[in-house]
Amino acid sequence: MPKVACFQIPGLTCWFWSNDHEPPHFHVKRDGEWELRVKFLESVDQMFELVWGAEPKAKLLRKITQAVAENRMNLLAEWEANVNQ
């Protein structure tokens, strides 16, 4: 379970499953509250998929969206290096 290395958001855990599926994505969770699948090459309205728990607050989704926008190419490089190799 490689962690996302190109950014961190305090209070959240972001990672890739090493044997995951397309489309390129990472997982993010707040322990005990929720988990999202973040399809970082998609548009904002298609980017987030709730895996379990309550929907995160809009402010936190904006932080994740900003981190993705600033690191999209790095995320793709990490996906290619860590998933299904």
Rank of each mutant, 00 (worst) to 15 (best):
D45S: 12
P23I: 00
V68Y: 00
E55Y: 02
M47E: 09
L76P: 13
S43T: 13
N84L: 09
G53S: 05
F16W: 12
P24W: 00
E55G: 02
L60T: 01
L41G: 11
K63H: 04
A54L: 08
V83Y: 05
A5M: 11
R30T: 08
V4C: 10
A54C: 09
A54E: 15
D20N: 09
V38G: 04
F48I: 05
Q85V: 11
S43A: 14
V51A: 08
Q8G: 09
L36V: 02
A69T: 08
T65F: 05
W34I: 02
A58T: 09
G11D: 01
I64H: 01
L75E: 05
T13D: 14
P56Y: 00
F7Y: 12
S18M: 10
A77F: 07
E22R: 14
I9L: 10
I64Q: 01
W52I: 03
V28H: 02
T13V: 12
K39E: 14
P10C: 01
D45H: 14
V4F: 05
P10K: 03
P24I: 02
K3G: 10
K3Q: 13
W34R: 08
W79K: 04
R30D: 11
A54G: 09
F16D: 08
W17F: 12
A77M: 09
A54I: 08
A67W: 00
E80W: 10
H21E: 11
F16P: 11
W34P: 12
R62A: 11
E80I: 07
A5Q: 15
W17E: 14
W79M: 04
W79V: 07
P2E: 04
V44I: 11
Q8D: 14
E80F: 04
R72A: 08
D45R: 14
E49K: 12
L41T: 09
W34G: 07
R37N: 12
D20I: 03
L36Y: 01
K57C: 05
F7I: 03
E42F: 08
V83T: 13
V4D: 03
P24M: 01
C6Y: 07
K39L: 12
D31P: 14
M1E: 07
G32F: 03
W52C: 02
K59F: 00
A5P: 10
E22D: 15
A77W: 07
V51L: 06
T13P: 10
S18Q: 14
N84A: 08
K57R: 13
V44R: 15
L50F: 01
D31M: 07
R62M: 10
L36F: 01
N19R: 14
R62W: 09
V83R: 07
L76M: 15
K29D: 15
M73V: 13
F26A: 02
T65H: 11
S18P: 15
E55H: 07
K57M: 03
G53R: 04
W79T: 05
H27K: 09
W52K: 09
K29F: 06
L50E: 05
A77Y: 05
V83E: 06
L75I: 06
P2C: 02
R62N: 13
S43W: 10
